[in-house]
């Protein structure tokens, strides 16, 4: 059983993204990387300094970058494009719609500094709606890895996958939740802890918090199952269906606004299958503010303790 206190600190998922880009780019010469003046922040530079001829830092022009990726993909390349999640999705949305989703092109989109854990820069750079936006692009795979191992695996899977993919990367160093060789497939969640009292479904930074919450709950005699639902689309409905039968209650935890993220997807799936009560741990319907990442996660309620209270609320409804 995984206990959270023992989790070692790993790389930021953005740093693992850069390493994996270099790996897939070494294996496949069709991999092209573009960035929009954030190459050192997104770690796409890890690839860029080794393969300068296949790397383009085009400056501060996210919409143009998506359009260029559309052309590259149409001509047989596999473009990986990166910026902050807030900019690449919000500024490039129509281009993603017309140039990637609608023509079903092989465009890989990396949105870095997702969520509010970017911290002090504040709302303009905090992406709290990227998962909703990416899920609103038909045919996109939408994936939010929780640690460096699953991030590397997700980049490999994205390079193999024929079609558009959105990956959310995080700024802070992140605890290692999975084994290095963990089996990873888009659309297949990973159960990180078994339990039968309720199920905590989480992704990204909140998986480690869910494990911490499960430890606290266990001390109270509540056995929580924890599922890393790294892929929001396509969603692993089979795992949810099983969990609904076996545990009968859910907490969904994510670093995102309330609407259109993992919480919405899980609720939608449960209602279509075996309904069960659900409580949510997320930002709600608001923006955050500037502050240290930990201070913000505390103030805006995306911590293990919030998951524990949500678990107690949902058990009362079971």
């Amino acid at each position: 059983m995984t206990t959270a206190n023992a989790l070692p600190m790993g790389l930021a998922t953005r740093e693992a993204y850069g390493q994996a880009l270099l790996e897939v780019g070494t294996a496949n010469r069709n991999v092209i990387v573009i960035d929009a003046d954030l190459a050192k922040s997104t770690f796409s530079w890890t690839f860029g300094k080794v393969f300068p001829e296949r790397f383009f830092n085009i400056g501060i022009q996210e919409a143009n970058m998506v359009g260029i990726a559309s052309g590259l993909a149409s001509s047989g390349k596999i473009p990986f494009i990166s910026s902050f999640a807030a900019f690449i999705l919000c500024k490039g949305f129509d281009q993603l719609r017309m140039g990637a989703a609608y023509p079903k092109l092989n465009v890989k989109v990396a949105g870095s500094h997702g969520g509010i854990s970017i911290g002090e820069d504040g709302v303009s750079q905090q992406s709290v709606e990227d998962v909703a936006l990416a899920c609103a692009l038909p045919g996109f795979v939408v994936c939010i890895p929780s640690d460096e191992h699953t991030m590397r695996a997700a980049v490999r899977a994205a390079a193999e996958h024929d079609g558009p993919v959105y990956l959310r990367l995080g700024r802070p160093k992140t605890q290692i939740v999975h084994e290095a060789g963990v089996h990873f497939e888009f659309g297949h969640s990973i159960e990180v802890r078994d339990g039968h009292s309720l199920t905590i479904v989480a992704n990204g930074l909140l998986v480690a918090q869910a494990l911490l919450a499960a430890d606290t709950l266990a001390r109270k005699g509540i056995e929580a199952r924890v599922i890393d639902m790294h892929t929001v689309k396509p969603l692993d409905t089979a795992a949810l269906e099983r969990a609904s039968h076996e545990t009968g209650a859910f907490v969904v935890a994510e670093e995102h606004m309330h609407h259109g993220g993992l919480g919405s997807a899980v609720a939608q799936a449960l209602v279509a299958g075996t309904p069960a009560p659900v409580e949510y741990v997320n930002l709600g319907d608001r923006y955050a503010e500037s502050g240290k990442p930990d201070d913000l996660l505390d103030k805006y309620g995306m911590r293990a303790k919030n998951i524990v209270s949500a678990a107690e609320r949902v058990l009362a409804r079971k």
């Binding site: 002090e120 750079q125 503010e289 500037s290 502050g291 201070d295 913000l296």
Partner: peptide, 12 residues
């Protein structure tokens, strides 16, 4: 850039 400050990291 502190929590609850009017001096946000970018103009609001």
């Amino acid at each position: 850039r502190q929590v609850s400050s009017r001096m946000q990291g970018h103009p609001v």
